[in-house]
Design a protein around this nucleic acid. Structure first.
Lengths: 163, 163
DNA sequence: TTTGCTAATGTTATAATGTTGCAAATTCCG
DNA sequence: CGGAATTTGCAACATTATAACATTAGCAAA
């Protein structure tokens, strides 16, 4: 198993969060983009686990924070974060997850566990090139590729097997 | 270009519809499933073009038909049709499109034109196997694979290029 | 033919997700 | 400082999807 498969194993998750926030600051600085407190807080919330969070879940936590936010606040923050590749939207879940390859150019592929809800983002060059070849055969010009695989992660698959 | 690329070319679309309805009847018969008038009508509407239709678009046409339907009617019909592989839901569009490979087992990949809105469904074994290999490397057990490519179809790409 | 079961539909209400538009505040930069 | 641009607050609204429960249609056994 790849060493990147953190979501499906116990790990020091606080390190994930810290790293993600540090990366975000770097990336925003490089692009002269403003990682405002709201945006940073939303990113932090998205990173609270490897389970994608809905926009309204984020909104609810902001409310607990005492931040009297409305939906547009959250969607705007999420749009911003997506724009700089800091979070991804998972279309099949209507939810958002932290990008684990922030900064590097990448074609994500998401492995979504139906049981525990954790999501692993992969960079799969073989998949990406196969998709582009298939598109090219139809003379189609791809701009954005969504690959989301729903199934069972190693932990949950073995839990299921053993009862 | 594959001869399957009908959506992006002029064609006798009525033939698509007729074929789809005939296939549906066969498939439902084989499974002892009832292709009721509502379900058949919804399938027919979905097939009105190769542009995916939202559930509420379907609902609106049913209303024009004089069918006083509510959302659950449409969603139930769509669920049924999906269950027998007669339509697909396009997650990135929240919309539904007729399955062009009904009956055959297949792993669809969708090429969605941003300009004209038409969708081409492909069977891409190379993509499918690459996805499964990538999942296997993470010991992930796939149950359902979503591959949606947004971009420009040949017609629209050349329109764009030539002004 | 009635009875009784199951699948399918109708109906109402509501939940969940996402957007628009405009005004106020903040930040950037000369 | 002061003007321009970005960001936020806020209210209303639009879209997509589901829950819960009542009713009806199809079909087969008594």
């Amino acid at each position: 198993m790849s060493s990147s498969a953190l979501p499906y194993r116990p790990h020091n998750h606080q390190a994930c969060v810290t790293q993600a926030l540090a990366d975000a600051r770097t990336i925003c600085q490089q692009h002269n983009a403003r990682l405002t407190p709201t945006r940073e807080r939303v990113l932090e919330l998205i990173w609270q686990s490897h389970k994608p969070l809905g926009a309204y879940d984020v909104l609810a936590v902001l409310a607990e924070d005492g931040h009297n936010a409305a939906p547009p606040t959250v969607y705007r923050a999420l749009d911003f974060l997506q724009q700089y590749g800091l979070v991804h939207r998972i279309a099949s879940l209507n939810a958002f997850t932290g990008c684990t390859h922030a900064g590097k150019s990448h074609n994500g592929m998401f492995l979504i566990c139906r049981s525990c809800g954790n999501v692993l983002e992969l960079t799969a060059p073989a998949v990406s090139s196969a998709v582009h070849r298939a598109a090219a055969e139809e003379s189609f010009r791809p701009e954005d590729v969504t690959i989301e695989v729903s199934g069972y992660c190693p932990r949950c698959a073995s839990d299921k097997a053993h009862g």
